[in-house]
């Protein structure tokens, strides 16, 4: 009998303690932001999908060595290039990223010795079509140039 009432008493006490904590949290300022009306800036090292980098004139740094293509564990990267007549170097004509398979591991960025690719800070990427994630990075770069 005594145990019964003492249980009720202690139950009530712990209930009040809990409600006290909740009330204190209730009057604290919010810690969340109301996305999409407010957004956070991504940190400098944020790993969005990769992006081609360009030199001062807007031409891609990429020399088509193919190291990134080979380093990628999921074969996300496909590169096309042409070799203009009389030139020794290849010129990049297309760089597609299959983002549906990318795991943002960073192997490609690490393997590139020419600072030609880096992580973007893109994160608003929702789509219902798979094709939207086959990203033509070369075209993106061209568009940026314009």
């Amino acid at each position: 009998m005594i145990a019964y009432f003492s249980d009720i008493y202690h139950g009530l006490i712990s209930l009040l303690v809990g409600m006290g904590i909740t009330f204190r949290e209730f009057i604290k300022p919010p810690v969340t932001v109301a996305y999409p009306y407010e957004t956070l800036t991504m940190c400098a090292r944020y790993r969005g999908h990769i992006e081609l980098l360009a030199d001062d004139e807007g031409n891609p740094n990429c020399v088509v060595c193919g190291l990134c293509e080979r380093a990628c564990p999921s074969e996300c990267i496909s590169i096309t290039s042409v070799k203009p007549e009389g030139s020794k170097k290849k010129v990049l004509t297309g760089y597609t990223l299959d983002f549906t398979r990318c795991s943002l591991c960073g192997s490609c960025v690490e393997s590139c010795n020419f600072s030609a690719i880096a992580f973007s800070r893109e994160y608003n990427l929702a789509s219902s079509r798979k094709e939207d994630f086959h990203i033509d990075l070369f075209k993106r770069l061209e568009e940026k140039k314009r």
Binding site: C43, R45, Y46, R47, S103, L104, C105, G106, F119
Partner: peptide
């Protein structure tokens, strides 16, 4: 962890 590794859950 995100500021260091760049990801929030599946770090590499």
């Amino acid at each position: 962890l995100e500021a260091v590794t760049g990801s929030r859950l599946t770090y590499c």
